[in-house]
Every structure is written in structure tokens, then in C-alpha cells.
Design a binder for these strands. Structure first.
Lengths: 240, 240
DNA sequence: TTCGATTTGTTCGTATGTATT
DNA sequence: TAATACATACGAACAAATCGA
């Protein structure tokens, strides 16, 4: 028999649902706490406990005197939350992207699996070369389900003012809330060596990253090769 | 002029200080909330807010009907919080350690820097080979300040029932609360290839990890080479 | 610039529920 | 069962930040 669920959990689930189904879009303000509490049938304190957790998960942002709004992808959140490459001195800098290719393909079994699609489902494949300090450092091969981004074009990818995740959010209402990365070391093949200007033999990081939105729905998956001659990948464990 | 500090922050600092100076040792129970609140000159609600944050940081553990105690290093916390190596199927398994060497040396400039010591300060250097599924996967070269672990011996390192961080905690009262890792790819040199049974050339992960206790005091620093042929390093970003 | 309305932040108190021993 | 301890929920009062009139 299911254990009793606390009211604040129910409220939190309601709020999460509203985020997921687009009731409140990114950047939009929620109603004031007393009002929202009444709508949810809870006291302000209980509502606040639910909102506290969503703020801790970076889904909502609260500002005293202003209100509570849905988190937006900015360069800053991208840099602090999803980008872990730093130079020797530990500085993160925003990478400059160079689009190498944009193709519509069909999902192979592995890609379909991680994206939660059927094999042969239409996906878009983008290859991106990221520069840091005017040197090519990261090669990305990104695959995204066409169903989630129906009218996506090469043009949109090139001319975007924002990050890739920012583009997903502002144009398609898809918010990336979490990524999972699996890192291995690999010997760079000839193409990677050429693009990243590496000698032979050369070792690179091979990062397989999948991005998820609410409810663990996969948004994109990518394979990333990183030249760590002048940069490294940073990870803080145990939190703080 | 210093901005007003909320009471719950002051309480949190008090509790953190008590953890740091050994007032409560690992595993030990704190006084009940009403009592502790009175000691801190705050209401129970305010105390709970302070404790909430320390629980979120994994420094305290609360159990309903039982009490609140100081977090201890167990194999489980080690595995979930500080160990990120998994096999192909994503399973973490506890590694088996083989001690290769135990030496007392003097800190070079770089080691002294990260450990916050003077150059030439006495440090202990340990080399450890970690096996997963009966195959050597990780080579660790660990350096720790002798001052923090005065009577540390090779014997203690070999015969420990627990993890290395568990040994620090149970015998020396030093609790690791956070680690920072910086990951690069490297070509394995001959020694690494031999120990990890790799062909030439071979790419390995080179992880530089520093462990910290309360107040950002460095506890140890290590260089770790990982054979990622059958394993990978996992990282979840954006939290959850 | 000042002031007032709005909104979240902090703190307290109380009552009741639930898990553990 | 009883005692103890944390968990949940509600409400109230005041503080601090923000913004526009």
C-alpha cells in the first residue's frame, strides 16, 4: 500500500507538471506566493517548501521584492552548470562555434535507444567545432530528434544569438535541466587529429553526453572529442 | 558595513564550527532539535533550516524517530559520492586495492601548493593499484601531509577494513567532504602500460584529484591513471 | 527623491503526524 | 504501549528588496 505522500510533494508535482506542459514558459513569472498557495490548496509555508526544492534544482528562480520565475538558459547558466572545460588556470571562457555540417539522417539502433525513439526515426545530425582562445579544442557530433525540433534549419543553428540549449528553449520551449556524461580516453583518429591540430599519436577525451528535459525525456545526444593539451575537464564531487 | 546575516546562517556556522573542531565526531548524535535550538538561541524552525542545508551538503544525516548524527564515510557514501568509475553497463563495483609502495618524502613546490604546506614539508606518498572485476584498472599515486596523519604506517594502509577516506576519518578524525578533479587524456607511459596491461600506444584518463575537509583544508592529493577500455567515468551535470 | 504597494525572506509559535526504540 | 525524535502543516508578524507613481 502506497505510503502517504506529503502535501508539499503533491504541490511540487503540480508545479513540475505545469512547467512540463508549458503552462509557464521560461522567464515567465509565477503568481505571488499567497495566490499560488491558495490555488494549490496549501498554506504559504507549504508552497514555499515545494518551491524551495524546485529552486534547488535550478528549475525556478526566486527574487525578493520581484517574484518567482521559470529559469532561462543564459550563457551564464550554460557556463556554470553544463560546461566543465577550463584552461590551465581554471578559467571558463565561452567557446566560439564553427558549424561543420548539418544533415538529416535516420537513427541507428544505439541513437534510437538513448533518445527514446524507434530505429530509423528521423534525426538531425550536426557537427560543430568549438574554439577556445582561437584554437580548436572540441569536436561535437550532435544528434537530435527531428520530432522535437520540426522546422530546425542549418540557418537557425548558425545564426543563433544564444547557446544550443538556449535555442532549444527560446524557439521550441524545450528546457534542458540535466545532462549525463560518460568519459573515456581515446586515441584520436586522423580526422580528429586534423580538426583539433594534434600530432600522431594523440590522446583525447571522448565524452558521450545526453541532455534531458523534464521527466527524463532525452533532448539530444552527442559525442565530443576534447583536446586536453591546454585545457582540462573539471569535476567537483560531494557537492558544496 | 556588513549586511545583516540571517539567524539561520549564524546557527549553521555554529554547527559547522562544532563539526570542524571535533565537538561532535563522526557518527555521533546531536542533541534533540528543541534542545539544540535553545542552545543556539533560535526557534526549532530556524534550527531546522540550518540543519536542512547541512543535510543537503551531506555533513549531517537525519532520521525520523531517531535523531540527527554526523555523517560517516561508509563504502556506500564512498561509492555514490566520490567514485565515478563504472563498467559498460553503468554499474559501480567496489575496487580491490593493491599497495605498490609506501614512502615518506618531502613536498615539491607543486604538491606543497595544493596541500597548503611549505615546500619540503614531510608528506607520505602511497602508490595503489585498484582492481575492478579482477583486472587492474586504476593506478593511484596519493600524497598526504604527514602532519595530519602523524603515526600513519604502511601496515595501517594495508590492513584497513574501510576505504582510505574512511581510515582518515575513523583513526584521525579527518572527514573528507568534497573533492575536486581535473581530467585530461594522456598517452600511457611504459610503467602505466605495464601495470594496467595496455598495448602501445594507449590513451588513459589522467585525473588529478584533491580531497578537502571542512573549511577547504586539503587532506590529500593524487594523480590517477584510468584504463577506460572496459570502464568509463560518469558525470551528471545540472543536478537532480 | 520619496513614498507606498507588492513580493519574497526570516523568524517565531503551535499543533499534529509518523517512525523508532 | 509509551516515550522520544523528527516530519509536516498552518498561521502570523515583521524585514528587506524592488518597482513605479
Amino acid at each position: 500500500m502506497p505510503r502517504r505522500v506529503p502535501l508539499y510533494r503533491i504541490v511540487k508535482q503540480k508545479l513540475t507538471d505545469a512547467l512540463q506542459d508549458g503552462t509557464w514558459k521560461h522567464g515567465q513569472f509565477l503568481p505571488p506566493e499567497p495566490e499560488l498557495a491558495a490555488q494549490c490548496g496549501a498554506s504559504v509555508g507549504t508552497l514555499r517548501k515545494a518551491v524551495d526544492e524546485l529552486v534547488a534544482e535550478n528549475l525556478l528562480v526566486r527574487r525578493q521584492g520581484q517574484g518567482t520565475h521559470v529559469a532561462s538558459h543564459t550563457r551564464d547558466t550554460m557556463l556554470t552548470r553544463f560546461f566543465q572545460i577550463v584552461d590551465r588556470d581554471g578559467n571558463k571562457r565561452f567557446p566560439q562555434a564553427e558549424l561543420l555540417s548539418f544533415r538529416r539522417i535516420r537513427a541507428d539502433a544505439g541513437t534510437a535507444e538513448v533518445l527514446g525513439l524507434a530505429t530509423n526515426a528521423p534525426v538531425i545530425q550536426v557537427e560543430n567545432l568549438l574554439h577556445l582562445d582561437h584554437a580548436p579544442v572540441i569536436l561535437d557530433r550532435i544528434r537530435l530528434p527531428q520530432a522535437l525540433f520540426p522546422d530546425m534549419t542549418e540557418h537557425l543553428f548558425i545564426d543563433r544569438e544564444t547557446t544550443i540549449y538556449g535555442l532549444y528553449q527560446s524557439r521550441y520551449g524545450v528546457t534542458v535541466v540535466r545532462t549525463e556524461e560518460s568519459i573515456t580516453a581515446a586515441l584520436a583518429d586522423e580526422r580528429v587529429r586534423t580538426l583539433l591540430r594534434l600530432p600522431e599519436p594523440a590522446a583525447v577525451l571522448r565524452i558521450v553526453r545526453t541532455a534531458y528535459t523534464y521527466r527524463d525525456l532525452a533532448v539530444d545526444t552527442r559525442i565530443r572529442f576534447v583536446n586536453t593539451t591546454r585545457h582540462r575537464y573539471l569535476s567537483v564531487l560531494g557537492k558544496r
